[in-house]
């Protein structure tokens, strides 16, 4: 049941990201909510529970984008493994700072690969264009970081509710 609900929520998040939010991208301040929510899930949930969802979100994002199919699947799998590594070797805490750091790193990784794909497609690109892209995308990454702070109360409310429910089932 948990997987079914999470799958539906993630597909919905991907749809909202690709329709409602991305249509505002000319403003240049579009946070990647799909990424932020997935990072929260990875940081706060058990690895074995959250890892298969990287496939769900990856497939949904790949189907809805025009880029190379498989890019998001691979990206989200690597992101899951990285977060698991950090949780086990650097700090196990389910903290906001970990979410913010991961959001920043993953946003800039996405930017790097987007830039790389454009350079490869256009077979060369001017320095001015690179600077423009970097400026535009850095603002986007910053927006994602801010979004990770805004999303926290909402995520924590849902998370503590599901934890409480789990407890109730346990004591029954």
């Amino acid at each position: 049941m948990w997987y079914l609900i999470s799958t539906i929520i993630l597909i919905l998040v991907a749809t909202i990201q690709n329709s409602l939010f991305e249509s505002f991208k000319h403003i240049g301040l579009i946070p990647n909510f799909a990424l932020v929510i997935f990072i929260y899930l990875l940081v706060y949930e058990d690895f074995k529970k959250a890892f298969p969802l990287s496939l769900v979100l990856g497939i949904a994002m790949d189907i809805m984008s025009t880029g190379i199919f498989g890019f998001y699947i691979v990206f989200f799998i690597l992101l899951s493994l990285t977060i698991d590594f950090i949780k086990h070797n650097i700090g196990r805490s389910k903290s906001l700072s970990l979410v913010i750091i991961i959001t920043a790193i993953s946003s800039f990784t996405l930017i790097f690969f987007e830039l790389l794909s454009v350079i490869l497609t256009l077979k060369g690109i001017g320095l001015t264009s690179i600077v423009t892209i970097m400026k535009q995308l850095s603002v986007g990454a910053l927006a994602s970081i801010v979004a990770s702070i805004i999303v926290k109360p909402l995520f924590q409310a849902i998370y503590s509710f599901s934890e409480r429910n789990k407890g109730m089932v346990h004591y029954e």
Partner: peptide, 14 residues
């Protein structure tokens, strides 16, 4: 239009 490309550089719609 049902979706916009999630890339920040590519301009495409579904």
């Amino acid at each position: 239009i049902s979706a916009f490309d999630s890339s920040n550089i590519r301009q495409a719609v579904t």
